[in-house]
């Protein structure tokens, strides 16, 4: 417990340092403008970090594994499919027909629907097979991606840019209309989410133990799947898909914080994610003056790590 407190403190300090550095490094003459611009990015990064941290940790506990996250399981493919579908149907009228909020709501509903599809396919039948889950996720993800690609081919090239803008995550083009509403949704969900971490602690013992200890297992799984679906929607709608971020930060957190308590793990994971994103963004944007989004690097590193974990999982 002492080691955990120390690591927690260090991570908090790191986050403060990263925020300060990001906000104030080399501000230039128009400091007010720079500060406002950077402030928005920092806020977005923190919102995304909390979404990714909670949803990934909770999902891994529900599915009793450490290599799958909602993104890998195809949640983001659902988002892309919905975005493509909207543009496919409305073309360049998209923004007139559907407000940012309407779009967001549609994405949330789509992902909740997807969550319940997974639930029916896997939990309802009492199968808790990691490989089945991975298979279902990858198959559905590929299916949705193919559908999206197919429609993208049919879309008018000028409209295609609307879709393309949503395909790659970047903190340089944050959906600013959604930032404060997203933060509001996040706060509400985190309040609910943190009051229920004790159920995650029990769920981590496995289905049978959870039932033995008096948990309404199916109801609990449904609750967390809905929370996860909304959180993934928030983060994806805000900056776009960062497929392997969750995998990377959850495993880093488990390494640094050896505890079973989800309130600690999730809080720590929020911090770790924010530090990772902020420092990544700082290095890419300021030091290297690169226009490559930080998500590209994260997906490269995370993807390699995912393969490493898959190869290692055989002995689990």
């Amino acid at each position: 417990m002492k080691g955990i407190k120390k690591n927690f403190l260090i991570t908090v300090l790191l986050l403060l340092a990263a925020v300060t550095l990001y906000l104030f490094y080399n501000m230039g003459s128009n400091w007010e403008f720079a500060l406002r611009l950077r402030g928005v990015k920092v806020a977005a990064i923190i919102v995304v970090s909390c979404c990714v941290a909670y949803s990934s940790v909770a999902f891994q506990t529900l599915t009793n594994n450490r290599i799958l996250t909602p993104s890998i399981m195809g949640f983001e493919s659902v988002y892309l499919l919905i975005q493509t579908l909207i543009v496919f149907m409305y073309g360049d009228l998209t923004f007139q027909v559907l407000s940012g909020w309407g779009n967001f709501l549609l994405s949330v509903l789509g992902m909740i629907g997807f969550a319940f599809l997974l639930y029916i396919l896997i939990y309802k039948k009492g199968k808790d097979n990691l490989y089945l889950l991975l298979l279902v996720g990858i198959i559905l993800g590929t299916l949705f991606n193919s559908l999206s690609s197919f429609m993208q081919l049919l879309i008018d090239p000028s409209d295609y840019f609307i879709v393309q803008g949503k395909m790659f995550a970047t903190f340089n083009k944050i959906n600013r209309d959604l930032l404060w509403p997203s933060a509001g949704v996040l706060v509400i969900l985190l309040v609910v989410g943190f009051r229920t971490t004790k159920y995650l602690d029990v769920l981590a013992l496995g289905r049978d133990q959870a039932i033995n200890l008096g948990l309404n297992y199916n109801r609990a799984v449904q609750l967390f799947l809905v929370i996860i679906a909304i959180l993934v929607s928030v983060s994806t709608a805000l900056v776009g898909p960062i497929t392997f971020l969750g995998l990377l930060v959850t495993n880093l957190t488990y390494e640094l914080f050896k505890t079973h308590r989800h309130d600690v793990i999730i809080a720590a994971c929020c911090l770790v994610t924010a530090v990772t994103l902020l420092s990544g963004q700082f290095v890419m944007e300021r030091l290297f003056h690169l226009s490559i989004p930080v998500s590209a690097i994260i997906n490269l590193v995370g993807g390699l790590y995912f393969m490493f974990l898959l190869l290692r999982v055989r002995k689990l």
Partner: peptide
């Protein structure tokens, strides 16, 4: 109710494995 039954009846299954950082007392 799940909670009430859990105060009356408990079960230990044949195999239990978790990979949690959990002490015996916890």
């Amino acid at each position: 109710k799940n909670k009430v039954l859990a105060q009356r009846l408990s079960i230990l299954k044949q195999s239990n494995h978790v990979r949690l950082k959990l002490t015996v007392r916890e």
